[in-house]
Amino acid sequence: MEKNKPLLEIKNLHAKIGDKEIIKGLNLTVNPGEVHAIMGPNGTGKSTLANVITGKDGYEITDGEILYKGKNITDLDPEERALEGIFLGFQYPVEIPGVSMTNFMKAAVDAQRKYKGLDPIKPGEFLKMYREKQQLVNMSDKMKNRSVNEGFSGGEKKKNEIFQMAMLEPDLAILDETDSGLDIDALKAVADGVNKLRNKDNAFIVITHYQRLLDHIVPDIVHVMYDGKIVKTGDKNLAKELEEKGYAWIEEEYQKSKNAGNE
């Protein structure tokens, strides 16, 4: 089978915040149609990776490149990357008091349409789309008049991320610990939403601590991140192994190989 052109190619990426290097030579290739899981203990750079790919301020890329659809995107603004089809499901969705969900989504959809040279979406069409996507993640209709994330429960906030993803139909979605703090029903709703949106042209990077979410969103490839790098890659069984054995053995293996490299 002929392989598609990669959607995302990260080559030898080094990134730091202030003086602290967080990403230390990371390589990752994601092809259309794939779901990747990135696992690993806390503080190994998973969220930083998500922020660097999406262009958040405050990170300095000191080496390497991020190719998206074959183009280096490291100089693009966050909104340009978003308009190119990269979506981040936030670990901590931000509350924006005074901005209603519908206004926010209308602005986002229209920004995307403008980028594609289209006129703003018609109100009727927008509401129809809004309703459909709400149903996809089983989100209550009363949320739409509320301010973005304001007063939402943890589960509602995460569902809201998936809802926004459904509205914007990205080519590459990065879900940063979307499972954290979710009860099993919310987890299923989130996973269900993702599974419905999966297709041969888009790709997902699911960042998670736990195997739990991966029972519902079955990944094609599982990576383990440690000390700012991807130190192990496998199939979905790797996630199960991690669930059983924890991360300590990864750490040991990594230290061993590091020492061996130094000798």
Partner: peptide, 29 residues
């Protein structure tokens, strides 16, 4: 709020519009 600014921009809304959206919301009361 920088976090909110990034959140809004991540949805494809320009920095300027993201700022306006927040300022306008602030004035809303």
């Amino acid at each position: 709020d920088d976090e909110a600014l990034f959140y809004i921009r991540q949805r494809g809304i320009s920095k300027r519009d993201a700022q306006l959206l927040q300022l306008y919301a602030f004035a809303g009361e």
